[in-house]
Nucleic acid binder design. Structure first.
Lengths: 207, 207
DNA sequence: TGTACATCAGTGAACGCGCGTTCACTGATGTAC
DNA sequence: TGTACATCAGTGAACGCGCGTTCACTGATGTAC
């Protein structure tokens, strides 16, 4: 007889998900280098061999973590409101809350993983498209600079900001008054098609 | 009698520099994880114990690599011409040529290292100040947005660009026609205080 | 100038560690008849 | 309904590896007198 549903796991419950959860937790608490299949197995109270039932090797496990990361990231961005600022804020927020995960997602092996895993490819594109959409909205009927190029710049800006923030370089340069909100306000101004009209920040600057 | 000059090394010549050179080479060719003190010793044709004569431990060695990296980075930026575009180009160029070094310099342990090593602290500040200067020049007498905040944004933009470039995400999103020069031209436009006058890119866009 | 001594950059074997991965296996679950 | 069999998620010991680091040492260089 054909199985009606994905078979319930026999012993553990769902070791695959448990491994991923344990991996994400390790990543958050102790960083990428602390994530080993052995440690993951330990956290799941399972023998060192067990995870290999679900992941061919460590690379495949890391790919699974990255994929899960992109899912959560996508969800976080999708919930963002208030247009470009909101999106940027959500991006920075995620990067601040899950630095090591961000490193894994956008880090060294992205290219290799993305070419092998269509889900990752898609996730990265989706992230970008959300940004492009918001940038396009700002430029509705304004006929300014090419939208796609602007979106790339917006992405680079918010991504760079999150990296500099994550490693403490921003704080280093701005001193104690590093105020991300203010930086972001300026950033968004850059992408407004015309900066002619009066606005809060110019007034701030004159004062 | 007091020594007149730093004593010439006895056996090797200058093992400390040799280690640093070997470390940088390993970093370039095989990435951060391939850099071990043992491998460095091997490359220098020296026993595994030898590097410990010059570096207390691996952390100290990595700090030395990062410091050397910032020296070269600073020199590369200092040679840049053509204002903001040139500076950005030099930044991206360095990041493209020395990706793993960049990762070490701006990566995970920057904060810890910078608080312990004033040279690193200084180097990071100097990088930023060059950017701030160029941004200020663009805004000479224009009284636009606050200069320091603009410079932070410029830094984030170029840094983010270099990261996305380095990991292949830009190519991923832009497809084969990923043209960094074009992206940079747009980027610089963003920082020009008034975008009213006609310029090449707007014409490009209309065509 | 010669000799005893101090310094110090190096040697090479060894330690203990955690890792990725594999081997041969067990025991619970599901299936065919 | 019962029984023989197949499947498959797990066990736990073991393999070989490269690593950071330490130990006790050697031999070249420089210094004091």
């Amino acid at each position: 007889m054909v199985r009606r549903q994905p078979r319930a796991a026999y012993h553990h419950g769902d070791l695959r998900q448990a491994c991923i959860a344990a991996g994400l937790a390790l990543l958050s608490k102790q960083g990428k280098d602390a994530v080993s299949l052995r440690e993951v197995a330990r956290k799941c109270r399972v023998s060192p061999r067990a995870p290999y039932q679900h992941f061919a090797d460590k690379t495949e496990f890391f790919a699974a973590l990255a994929e899960e990361g992109f899912k959560e990231f996508g969800a976080a961005l999708a919930q963002a409101k208030d247009g470009l600022v909101g999106l940027a804020r959500a991006y920075l927020d995620f990067a601040t809350r899950r630095p090591a995960l961000m490193q894994l997602m956008f880090g060294d092996d992205f290219e290799e993983r993305a070419t092998r895993n269509p889900a990752l490819h898609q996730a990265a594109l989706a992230t970008f498209q959300q940004l492009e959409e918001q940038v396009a909205r700002l430029h509705e009927g304004a006929g300014g600079l090419p939208c796609r190029l602007l979106a790339v710049n917006a992405w680079a800006l918010v991504h760079g900001l999150s990296e500099l923030l994550r490693h403490g370089q921003l704080a280093h340069v701005l001193g104690d008054d590093a105020n991300v909100s203010t930086v972001l306000e300026v950033a968004v101004q850059l992408f407004v098609p015309s900066r002619r009209g009066p606005n809060k920040l110019r007034r701030m600057n004159k004062a």
